[in-house]
């Protein structure tokens, strides 16, 4: 398998509250060129799982392998796009994109590659601009270009469009699909939006919470571009919604019980 998660678990140590298990026994296999979404309510650990694939967090148990190599730390073979664009304000757009290329490519080659990906995200005009001059959507496109410029094996995206307005989000969805088709990258995409997951991905992994775990794995065999009015899309949305409703009810019930317990 291309990206393989075996029996992965994560427990946070907290001095005051003791141990807190985010999830355990996560098994997941992802194929090359697949577009996979991790979908779940807040607290299910989907972002933590993504950070572990990125190598920003360590697994407490289990293994994560990319092309049969164990992931131990962060590296440029896995490009990450965060919810906040995390561009460097002291660099212009092009220098932000060449940032990860400094040690491997000559200046000329790096700039050539940056220009290529900036063209792909339609920001060629803004090469010399600084980040404060760009809108949130444009900043996120620069972040995507920066991740792609490293030519990573996997593109990891952590709710990349979560902070954008509806209109911009739809435009970027279409752009992302185009980029994915053009670059043939494997994409692992974290979101809490059912529509977003179904609109974009080949596979939707639904995660439950307390404890975090995978509760379903849907293949989305609907040809792109997908319309929200498509019956198959609506049917799948309902299915996922029902699954998540149980999870959310569970959290609410637990909170209510806590409330009853502590309010007496």
């Amino acid at each position: 398998m291309f990206l393989q998660l075996n029996d992965v678990g994560k427990t946070f140590e907290d001095k005051e509250k003791g141990e807190f298990e985010v999830f355990s026994n996560i098994d997941l296999s992802i194929d090359r060129k697949e577009f996979v979404s991790l979908l779940g309510p807040s607290g299910c650990g989907k972002s933590t799982l993504l950070s572990m694939v990125a190598g920003l967090e360590h697994a407490t148990s289990g293994t994560i392998q990319l092309e049969d190599k164990q992931i131990k730390q962060a590296g440029p073979d896995r490009g990450m796009v965060f919810q906040q664009p995390s561009l460097f304000p002291w660099l212009n757009v092009r220098d932000n994109v060449t940032f990860p290329l400094k040690s491997t490519l000559s200046k000329q080659e790096a700039e050539k590659r940056a220009d290529h990906f900036l063209k792909m995200v339609h920001l060629s005009r803004f090469k010399k601009h600084y980040t404060y001059e760009l809108s949130g959507g444009m900043q996120q496109r620069v972040a995507i270009a920066r991740a792609l410029a490293m030519d990573p094996k996997v593109l990891l995206m952590d709710e990349p469009f979560g902070a954008l307005d509806e209109q911009t989000r739809h435009i970027l969805h279409d752009e992302l699909i185009k980029i994915w088709e053009e670059t043939q990258k494997t994409i692992l995409f974290v979101t809490h939006s059912i529509q977003e997951a179904i609109k974009l991905s080949d596979r939707v992994i639904v995660m439950g919470t307390r404890p975090g775990r995978i509760i379903a794995d849907f293949n989305v065999d609907i040809p792109r571009p997908r319309k929200r009015s498509d019956e198959r899309v609506i049917e799948l949305e309902d299915k996922v919604m029902n699954l998540l409703k149980e999870e959310i009810n569970k959290v609410l019930k637990e909170e209510l019980n806590n409330e009853l317990e502590y309010s007496h």
């Binding site: 190598g55 962060a74 590296g75 440029p76 490009g79 906040q84 995390s86 400094k102």
Partner: peptide, 20 residues
């Protein structure tokens, strides 16, 4: 967040100190 982003681009330690 800057330091995390730099790490995903293979920049850490002393290099992260000077470049980030």
């Amino acid at each position: 967040q800057f330091i995390r982003a730099a790490r995903t681009m293979g920049t850490r330690g002393i290099s992260s100190f000077f470049r980030v």
